[in-house]
Write a protein that binds this DNA or RNA. Structure first.
Lengths: 210, 210
DNA sequence: TCTCTTTCGCTACGAGTCGTAGCGTAACTG
DNA sequence: CAGTTACGCTACGACTCGTAGCGAAAGAGA
């Protein structure tokens, strides 16, 4: 789960300064805001955090790994409050995700690390566990809640249920990311409402016809 | 529409070597395959294309602009053959788009230039006209065809029709990109079929309720 | 044909970044 | 106290960047 380079396994010796981790990750996010992904340098981050550049390289393998950790912390905020109905829950998660993507540090970092991950399998795995899975939980939780409400039928086949969840997740996350970053149009309440209507209609059709 | 730096406006003088453009763009795509976005250097591209590095800088402002042009050419291949039904048309465009995203050169380049564009407005505009709009045409053509078949109702309000097309486009393109690049799962015929079922159901619900 | 203009390949350059190595010092363990 | 590890600092070679300057090549117009 950690993309940090672990401290030496052997016992004894000076422990790592935990406060430095916090300062480094916070400085990374601030540097992303000020400079964007491509102009961000590890030397700059180190100077902002008040640590030596070598300390950074002792803890992270490179720029991508550091930025993944810095951005992943922001995804901890994601939650799924019960808004009473599946439609309201979907709108809520869409707007929450959009708010996260509205931040300049996530905007520039998220696409960049995904681009890097296309030719770096370990990095992709880190992104999956640190970022993607945290979003996916919301989809699974939302479905479970809707099934308990009776808004969605229970799915006996676990494999099919997994495929459906994967599909829904790609549709939600993909649409929001594309709207926010590629089309560069606002993900406001009206858009979220239109999108939710579309998705709910599709769900009804897809579940009635396996 | 051109992201290239235009040749000098004044008449006369030695004309630009048009073959060099072809060689440069082709070399750029090959370098993307071999090196990926982050390790691609303009000096390397120039060497592969058999031109001087300075020639590259005379025609393109930087790495992002060059890669956008190199990748945009691939999106010319996109077409929308009439497969007889809206469902078949959607599946066709999804699989076609997925095939494009399956290429290593588009995989690594597309996300990277979008990431850059989050802090570079002119670049975003170039991406929109060179790449995004070429995909969007397919959505508009598909809807028009479906309306002529009677599969979709005509939309009297042009503003609402535009919003709907934008939404559909973000859903299709976003879902395919997310599936292919973030989830890193194959966009095969089965997935395309499931996705099409979902989208068609949503369309039916969304158009019945304005 | 001669002149003007622009592009081309080539070389060279200062500036900046990268990731690492070496050193002395600080911090914690047994 | 001795042993071990993390830290800050400096310095380094290698690389990339984007630009400048040069002479030669390739067309347009007189």
């Amino acid at each position: 789960m950690q993309s940090r380079i672990p401290p030496s396994a052997r016992t004894g010796g000076r422990p790592r300064n935990a406060a430095a981790d916090t300062a480094i990750l916070e400085s990374t996010r601030q540097a992303l805001v000020d400079l964007g992904w491509s102009k961000l340098t590890l030397g700059d981050v180190a100077a902002r955090a008040g640590v030596a550049k070598t300390t950074l390289y002792r803890r992270w393998a490179g720029k991508s790994e550091l930025v993944v950790d810095a951005v992943a912390e922001l995804f901890d905020e994601l939650e799924l409050p019960d808004r009473g109905s599946l439609a309201a829950d979907i709108e809520g998660v869409v707007l929450q995700f959009a708010a996260l993507l509205g931040r300049p540090e996530t905007k520039t970092a998220l696409m960049a690390v995904v681009a890097e991950s296309t030719s770096d399998e370990p990095l992709r795995e880190r992104i999956r566990t640190s970022i993607v899975d945290r979003q996916k939980r919301l989809v699974l939780a939302g479905r479970k809640r809707a099934q308990e409400r009776g808004e969605l039928p229970p799915e006996p086949d676990p494999a099919a249920a997994g495929h459906t969840a994967d599909l829904i997740f790609d549709v939600i996350a993909g649409a929001v990311v594309h709207r926010a970053l590629v089309s560069a149009e606002p993900v406001d309440e009206e858009w979220a409402h239109r999108f939710t209507l579309l998705l709910l209609g599709g769900l009804a059709a897809a579940t009635s016809r396996p």
